[in-house]
């Protein structure tokens, strides 16, 4: 996590020592610092992909970083559509990335489940 931090700076103050905060992202336990947003803590841990586009499954990460574009939306402690870029991390917070939704009626799509049962089985398989 430290490797990606800008600690020394020629003009700005040196990055102060801050309390670490432990949180979870997609089941993985990670640490960030107090005053980190979910997005900054994840990026410091080398994680850029925050969700997959609901329909195409294309990977997405932060884009505007100040709450306008909603690209970084994640599920936080069960609440969906939370903007990772303006939400501070908290101890034991559970963050989940956005997933591609099933499109059972699209015959061209091989990578998504065709039925709700298949979807549930796939979901169980992930956990």
């Amino acid at each position: 996590m430290k490797r990606n931090r800008i600690i020394e700076h020629p003009i700005l103050d040196q990055l102060e020592e801050r309390k670490t905060v432990t949180f979870q992202f997609d089941g993985k336990t990670l640490t960030g610092y107090e005053r980190d947003t979910i997005a900054s803590a994840l990026l410091a841990n080398g994680i850029r992909t925050l969700r997959r586009h609901e329909h195409s499954g294309a990977p997405r990460g932060i884009y505007c970083n100040i709450g306008h574009c909603f690209e970084c939306r994640v599920t936080v402690n069960g609440t969906p559509n939370v903007r990772a870029c303006i939400t501070p991390i908290e101890e034991n917070m559970i963050v989940e990335s956005g997933k591609q939704l099933p499109s059972p009626l699209n015959p061209n799509n091989e990578h998504v489940p065709k039925t709700y049962r298949e979807y549930m089985e796939m979901k169980d398989g992930e956990n």
């Binding site: 505007c64 306008h68 574009c69 909603f70 690209e71 939306r73």
Partner: peptide, 8 residues
């Protein structure tokens, strides 16, 4: 018509 309301 997406979730950002066209901000981008």
């Amino acid at each position: 018509m997406g979730i950002c309301g066209g901000k981008t």
